[in-house]
């Protein structure tokens, strides 16, 4: 099945997802991961056989909410430390290859 049809059918398309995620996979890897990922999906799909009519949907595995902080500033990190991780600098900006929209 071609990628687009596979996606339309709700299936998994490892090559497409790898492309979206900028992962460079060989054809052998695509085939291997496709098989493994489908195995995982099918495993989870078994839940479809159960009657979950009266079970509330689970949105998070931790039953805690509203974990927030007050709007109080804390120190930012030193500019030189920021730049230590930048490939290149241009007047305080992090320089990247030209972005063309």
């Amino acid at each position: 099945m071609a990628g687009a049809e596979k996606r339309k059918a709700g299936g998994l398309d490892v090559a497409y997802v790898a492309h979206l995620a900028r992962l460079h996979l060989t054809d052998d890897e695509v085939a291997l991961f496709q098989e493994q990922m489908e195995g995982i999906v099918h495993y989870v799909e078994q839940i479809g056989a159960l009657d979950v009519e009266d079970v509330a949907p689970l949105s998070h595995t931790v039953s805690v909410s509203n974990v927030w902080r007050e709007d109080e500033p804390s120190p930012s990190i030193d500019h030189s430390k920021v730049m230590a991780n930048a490939p290149e600098e241009h007047d305080g900006l992090i320089s990247v290859p030209k972005i063309v929209d």
């Binding site: 007047d91 900006l93 992090i94 320089s95 990247v96 972005i99």
Partner: peptide, 13 residues
């Protein structure tokens, strides 16, 4: 925020 230069772009976070 991106700023564009001749052959590169700069990012301010």
């Amino acid at each position: 925020k991106n700023t564009h230069f001749g052959s590169s772009s700069g990012v301010d976070f």
